[in-house]
Write a protein that binds this DNA or RNA. Structure first.
Length: 193
DNA sequence: CACCCGATTATCT
DNA sequence: GATAATCGGGTGT
């Protein structure tokens, strides 16, 4: 198992978002390993009006985005879902992260089916709120160091060819829609929508 | 398949 | 009071 190392996260979030495609997001809960290949991401930068860090470090919620890279930024979406970002930014930038939007289930599929209350593979991890529920990721993981053997981490997975990466506008935002900072694996059935 | 809407809370106006 | 990096269930075509 090859873990992604610190230097990987010290790059522009847009680069990290692209390069995270194909990586394994892993959550170990006791003896259970729950994991999937990342097949859809979105980049958010501090000079980007759609980013939670855009207005500065004002509230407790977005503090993690300003903290060390390779930590998990988890927030509550629409009051009821959790979404996970990987804190990553170029050293010249004050804050930034990559939203994980979809996974292809690999390990712990039975666990995911219990958590999601469905056996339908396509519905387990095909969206940012779905995949956190499937992997058992909650607000308590906000600020978790992904390099520190915490049970939540990233590892090298499968290689995605450049020609199989599609860039498109980010989903669900009302500002800075012009940036093509959503990336997904062409033709992968687990991409959201 | 398309739209519409309710759930539920941190944050902003 | 409104909006938001969402989801699932409802209704209609």
């Amino acid at each position: 198992m090859n873990y992604l190392t610190s230097s990987f996260y010290h790059q522009d979030a847009v680069i990290v978002a692209k390069e995270l495609l194909g990586a394994l997001l892993i959550h170990k809960i006791g003896d259970t390993v729950v994991a999937g290949y990342i097949v859809e991401t979105e980049a958010y930068c501090s000079d980007d009006a759609a980013c939670h860090a855009y207005k500065g470090r004002k509230t407790l919620r977005n503090a993690t985005l300003f903290g060390p890279v390779a930590h998990a930024y988890v927030y509550v979406s629409y009051g009821i879902h959790f979404c996970i970002n990987i804190v990553s930014r170029h050293p010249s930038i004050i804050a930034g992260g990559v939203l994980i939007r979809a996974l292809q289930p690999v390990y712990g599929i039975e666990f995911m089916q219990k958590m999601r209350n469905t056996t339908q593979l396509k519905n387990l991890t095909s969206g940012p709120g779905k995949l956190t529920q499937a992997l058992g990721i909650t607000l308590q993981h906000n600020g978790t160091d992904l390099l520190n053997n915490s049970g939540l981490f990233l590892a090298q997975g499968i290689e995605i060819a450049e020609s199989d990466i599609i860039a498109s506008p980010r989903i669900g935002i009302s500002q800075a829609k012009e940036h093509l900072w959503r990336f997904y694996v062409k033709g992968n059935p687990f991409v959201s929508k």
